[in-house]
Design a protein around this nucleic acid. Structure first.
Length: 273
DNA sequence: CGCGCTCCCTGGCCGC
DNA sequence: TGCGGCCAGGGAGCGC
């Protein structure tokens, strides 16, 4: 499901249920997610008070009162739901927290590409899943000059470079396609040719598309919903993603599709160069 | 070193 | 309606 806007939306949604509240019980029905969950995770969490959840790239981090951190990654198919009372659990509800308020937070993930972990106190910078992450695209670090600098000499297509979490962390397949369309850049263009005005334009497009998606509550594809059951409305504003053969909203040229590094790319052959 | 491919897993959809 | 093949919003690990 989730790229940065969806994860940000989930984080905001679960924040009121978790922040300042104690975990009353933990329901853990399988430990074989992307990697085996750490031993004793349920016991570690039980009874602890949660702090304010934070987001880093596509990860959610919940600080705990013993200064360790609960790390949550939703993978491709992960979702979090909130309930006021104990719910009926489904097959893929692998991990749930019962809060002292009586509400439940349920982590569900059919494909099990998601992951949960406990980060030791002070260990976030060294965590193997976090240490290599690049800059946050909504931070001040992202600028035209910075982007042209990190892309200098890169012969990979710009599409692949934008998906590389070691450079910019949080973009995924939907928003990379959308940002490239918004900035008039072909997904095939070599990364090293993005500089100057073109880099500025791409940076603005990345920020604009992410901010708009967050504001819309993310993009709901297929049956995915946000924690409270709401859908994300950004799906109605996608310009190219999933619109193969449909007219470009700018120039009416049919949208084309290709595969790059095993992932679908969607682009307007007329607007994007 | 840096790149692209494969794989992890389940479920939904499409075509026959 | 049943079934095989293909596809999916991520990303680590490996081979070239």
């Amino acid at each position: 499901m989730p790229e940065l806007p969806e994860v940000e939306t989930v984080k905001r949604a679960i924040s009121p249920a978790l922040a300042g509240q104690c975990i009353k019980s933990v329901r853990l029905t399988r430990s074989d997610l992307r990697w085996p969950l750490p031993d004793g995770m349920a016991a570690h969490l039980t009874g602890q008070r949660c702090g304010e959840p934070r987001r880093r790239a596509k990860y959610i981090m919940v600080p705990l009162e013993d200064n360790t951190t609960l790390l949550v990654h939703l993978g491709m198919s992960g979702a979090i739901r909130l309930y006021d009372n104990k719910p009926e659990f489904g097959t893929h509800d692998h991990f749930s927290l019962e809060m002292e308020t009586g509400s439940w937070m349920v982590f569900s993930d059919p494909r099990r590409f998601g992951h949960l972990d406990i980060i030791p106190a002070g260990g976030e910078a060294e965590h193997p899943l976090l240490s290599h992450l690049g800059i946050e695209p909504l931070s001040n670090h992202l600028s035209g000059p910075w982007l042209s600098d990190v892309l200098r000499g890169k012969k990979t297509p710009i599409k692949s470079a934008l998906l590389d979490q070691r450079l910019i962390a949080g973009l995924g397949n939907i928003y990379v396609n959308e940002a490239l369309h918004m900035s008039g850049i072909s997904p095939r263009r070599l990364a090293q040719t993005i500089a100057g005005k073109r880099a500025e334009k791409l940076v603005i497009a990345i920020r604009t598309v992410l901010a708009a998606a967050i504001e819309a509550g993310g993009t709901s594809l297929r049956d995915h919903v946000q924690p409270g059951g709401e859908i994300g409305y950004f799906v109605q504003r996608l310009s190219v993603y999933g619109r193969t053969s449909e007219p470009c909203l700018t120039c009416a040229t049919p949208i084309k599709e290709l595969r790059q590094s095993g992932r679908a790319s969607f682009y307007c052959p007329s607007c994007q160069r």
